[in-house]
Simulated assay, not measured.
Amino acid sequence: MNSEPAPSPARPLRADARRNRERVLAAAREAFGSEGISVPLDEIARRAGVGAGTVHRHFPTKEALLEAIVVGNMTELTEEARSRLEHPDPGAAFFGFFALMVECGAGNRALTGALTRAGTDVQSLVERPGQDLLAALAALLVRAQQAGAVRGDVTAQHVKALLIGVYAGSDWLGGETDARRRLLAVVCDGLRP
């Protein structure tokens, strides 16, 4: 018999604490996106309109803040993919989401790179949100294939590999948005029947 007490479930945040946390995350996303990850936590607190202590209570380290952003971004992408399952044009829903993943992923890669350099096990961090995102992508893909908008011999894993290829190719071409968009157009053409 185990003599350790059962862990108590985390209490949900009060409404004001939840709003402050969301303001900090929004300010951090904007700051990191426009200026890079070197923006200090105190500056993020200022931009969020909260005290430094509020930031540190929710995110004791910059890595904790980066982790929350990365997981949050993946969760938002998953929700977006699921919402596109109701789109009347499955092909447009799939290709629009693929383009969104390319754009959003470019920013997320800088955050995951920083976490990796800080010693975070990014693979473990994103395992569950990554599985959810891949499942939502697969559902969009199947709908688009059933509508004849995407070739039938492609799996969600292939699409993920193509996404990684767009990032790598864009980096090789200098990381410019134009290069990423050109590569995206070529990949999308290749996915069509």
Rank of each mutant, 00 (worst) to 15 (best):
G36N: 07
E63Q: 14
P193L: 04
F97P: 03
R192M: 07
L134H: 11
W172V: 13
E63F: 05
F59H: 01
P40L: 10
E80L: 15
G119L: 03
A10D: 13
T54K: 01
E103A: 11
P9E: 15
P129Y: 07
L77A: 12
Q157M: 10
G152T: 09
L41W: 00
K160V: 13
L162H: 09
R14F: 09
Q131W: 10
G105H: 09
N20D: 07
R18T: 04
V24F: 00
L13D: 02
E35Y: 13
G175T: 10
T78M: 08
R182C: 06
H158N: 15
L162D: 07
T112I: 06
G119P: 02
G148N: 03
D171E: 15
P40D: 13
G175M: 13
L85P: 12
A161V: 10
F94G: 00
E76Q: 14
G130S: 10
A17T: 03
A48T: 11
A28N: 05
T112E: 02
T177E: 15
I164Y: 09
I69Q: 00
D16N: 09
G175V: 09
L137P: 00
D89A: 13
Y167Q: 06
L134D: 08
W172M: 14
R180C: 08
L191G: 02
F59Q: 00
G53A: 14
G72Y: 03
F95D: 01
G105S: 09
E127D: 12
G51D: 12
A168D: 08
V102H: 08
V166G: 05
E103R: 09
G152E: 11
G165Y: 05
R151A: 12
